[in-house]
Structure formats: C-alpha cells, structure tokens
Amino acid sequence: MQALRTAATGMAAQQMNVEVISNNIANMNTVGFKKQRAEFQDLLYQTLEQAGAQSSDQGTIVPTGVQIGAGVKAGSVYRISTQGALTATGNQFDLAINGRGYFQVLTPTGDNAYTRAGNFAVNDQGQLVTQDGYLIQPAISIPQTATNVTVSQSGQVQVTQPGSPTPTVVGQLELASFMNEGGLSAQGSNLFKETGASGPPVIGTPGLQGLGTLTQGYTEASNVDPVTEITALIVAQRAYEMNSKVISTADNMLGVANQAKA
C-alpha cells in the first residue's frame, strides 16, 4: 500500500525538522549563532489520469485528472541571518557587528573562514585571536605595554601607552560580505567558509559599502527565539504523530484485506 511509504517519508521529514529545531535550541547561548529552518518539497506524483486528456470522441477533456502523491523530501535547511541582540561583556577585545558582515579568520590550514562571533582575546604574542586561537585578519597586534585599547565603529584599532597621551593606531579591522549568506558552509566553532553558492567575499571597511559597524565591549547574541522554537517543535511532533497514525491505519486496512474470505 502506497500510504505506508508516503507516511514513512513524512515521519523522516519531521524527524529532520526536529533535529534542526533541537540544534537551534542547543545554541541559544552561542555567540553569533544564526538559527536554521528546514524546508520540504513534495515527491513525484503517480498520474492515473492526465488533466486535459480527451475523454470522449466529441472532444471533451478531463478538467482535473487524477494524481497521487508519493510523499515529501527535504528541500533545504536554510540559515536566517537576522541580527542578534548586542550583549555587554566589559571585555575590551569583544566586538559585535551591528549590521551586515563577517569577521575574517585565518585557520591553521591557511584558509580564510568567516564568523559573526566577536568574543576575541589576545595570544602570547599580543595578536587578536578567536577563542580557538585563530588569527583575525587583517592581523592586529597589541603592544604588551598598552594600557588601553580602543576600537572605533569603523574598525580602527588604537592603543594608549605609558608616557604618551596620544593614542597610536595599530591596525584596521575589515569585514567580509557575501551576495548569498545562506550559501556559506558551516564548519563548526562559529566559523563559515565560502562556497560557489555564497559567491566570493567582498571586503570592506565597517560602516561603508553597506557593511555594519563595530561595537566594542559587546558580543552579538544568538538570534534564536525560544518561544518560536518550542512552538515549531510542538507542530513537528504533532505532524510526526499524524504520519505515524497513517501507518497504523494503513496497516489495519491491510490486515482487514488479508483476512477477507472469498
């Protein structure tokens, strides 16, 4: 019976939906995390009677036809890049992007990666790095003698040193933007890499070319809304249960057919 296979595809689809929702909920407190949504598509149809086919010698045609669907499949899991709330941290090396753009990160393999997580620190050489120790690009080095570090909204990094009342510029942060942010490939550890779908990065100064500005002493919180996720979880659970009920009903119908006597 086709209903068994159709309902099975529905259960598999809702299982994936729950997995996506659970990942969103698990990352509610992950800095810079962007929630995801699963989208689904219907499968091929079995055409028993083609719409528009001639139904008589007088030229009358079938108005609607008969098509039976075969279920559902995953179409995509897309990322929603809405702005997360800015959270004050008090750490002078923490930076939040208010608007569009990604920080550039140099990975140990020599490749560039991109992140919205601005919870930065300095390593033993005074270089600005991520929580995993990956260098921020362009490289920023903070002198050991610096008593204060200031990052402007446009990404200019200045330090104040003993005996000098005038701040010194030690670097300029830049942001990367993409034509299709949803096409970026998530690598874990809050990092993304470009793909053919995302397009190449466009590098620019914060506040220019449509890029967001930087806010020092803040990080961007996850954009996950717990109320929305719990509601979506309930809907997915009910859909799973309904597909399970279809399988039970189809099984009962098959049982009745098997017990029928000629």
Rank of each mutant, 00 (worst) to 15 (best):
Q2R: 15
L4K: 02
T6A: 12
A8Y: 02
T9P: 07
T9H: 04
G10S: 06
N17V: 06
N23S: 00
M28V: 14
N29M: 05
T30C: 06
V31I: 14
G32R: 08
F33Q: 05
K34S: 03
K35S: 09
K35V: 03
Q36F: 07
Q36N: 13
R37W: 05
E39K: 08
L44C: 05
Y45K: 12
Q46H: 10
Q50R: 15
G52D: 04
A53D: 08
S55E: 10
S56E: 05
D57A: 14
T60W: 14
T60K: 15
I61T: 10
T64N: 12
I68P: 08
R79S: 11
G84K: 06
A85L: 09
T89V: 11
F93S: 00
D94P: 02
L95V: 00
A96D: 02
A96Q: 03
I97N: 01
I97V: 10
N98C: 00
Y102F: 15
F103Q: 01
V105D: 01
T109N: 13
A113E: 03
N119Q: 14
V122C: 00
N123E: 05
D124Y: 12
D124C: 03
G126K: 03
Q137A: 04
Q137K: 10
A139F: 01
S141I: 07
I142Q: 00
T147F: 00
T147W: 01
N148P: 02
N148L: 11
N148V: 06
N148E: 14
V149I: 15
Q153E: 15
S154N: 14
Q156L: 13
V157Q: 01
Q158I: 04
P162V: 11
G163D: 02
T166R: 12
T168W: 09
T168N: 15
T168V: 15
V170I: 14
V170A: 04
V170H: 03
G171P: 02
L173S: 01
L173R: 00
L175T: 02
S177L: 00
N180G: 05
G182L: 03
L184E: 01
G188P: 02
N190D: 11
L191V: 09
E194Q: 15
I203K: 09
P206M: 11
G207W: 11
L208A: 13
L211G: 08
G212D: 07
T215L: 15
Q216L: 11
Y218V: 05
Y218A: 08
T219W: 04
S222T: 12
N223K: 12
N223T: 10
V224M: 08
D225H: 10
P226N: 12
P226R: 12
T228A: 15
I230M: 15
I234G: 07
V235P: 02
V235D: 07
V235M: 08
A236S: 11
Y240T: 06
E241R: 00
K245V: 08
S248G: 07
A250T: 05
N252P: 00
M253K: 04
V256R: 08
V256W: 03
A257W: 06
A260F: 09
A260Y: 06
A260K: 12
